[in-house]
């Protein structure tokens, strides 16, 4: 298994954190700039979530594109392509974590929850120097994240 990259977004679409362990196709060859890359990633999961909710065969579905509240409609946890698997976690506070791994990775929901609760909350939100809503680059966070990702064998 391999982990490619990870994104943290807030509700406003600001990319709070980005890290790539391994990205054979560089951003330059893809979206061009990292700002565009982040915006495309945000658009990808945002639209996918809206579509998933609109096509839900089980629940009263809102028309496509109608603004939803978090938790109001169904959501996706991951999707897999032949090249990579995208894992997605959204917290009711609007934080969104996207982790791209190889397609053979299993269900990482618990692990994303761990990254959220035990790494992000502890190292970033409890850091008095951190201003909420701003991108962060805290060493302790990065170190713990790497350590955890490595411990998963990614």
């Amino acid at each position: 298994m391999v982990a490619y990259n990870i994104y943290f977004f807030n509700r406003q679409g600001t990319c709070l954190y980005y890290y790539e362990w391994h990205r054979p196709k560089s951003v330059r060859q893809g979206a061009g700039t990292s700002a565009d890359d982040q915006k495309m990633m945000f658009g990808l999961f945002f639209s996918l979530k809206t579509f998933a909710a609109a096509m839900d065969p089980r629940q009263d579905n809102k028309s496509l594109g109608a603004p939803l509240r978090i938790g109001e409609a169904c959501t996706f946890h991951s999707f897999c392509t032949n090249n990579y698997k995208l894992h997605f976690l959204e917290s009711p506070s609007g934080l969104k974590i996207v982790l791209n791994t190889g397609p053979d990775a299993g269900d990482l929901r618990d692990h994303l929850n761990y990254i959220y609760g035990a790494i992000y909350v502890e190292c970033v939100l409890k850091n008095p120097a951190y201003t909420p809503g701003r991108p962060f680059s805290c060493e302790l966070f990065t170190a713990r994240l790497h350590h955890y990702i490595r411990s998963l064998g990614l």
Partner: peptide, 17 residues
């Protein structure tokens, strides 16, 4: 409060109300 909410959500595993 704006920081504490994430700790609350993560530790209480609150999904939706």
């Amino acid at each position: 409060g704006i920081r504490l909410i994430d700790e609350f959500l993560a530790k209480s595993k609150t999904g939706k109300c």
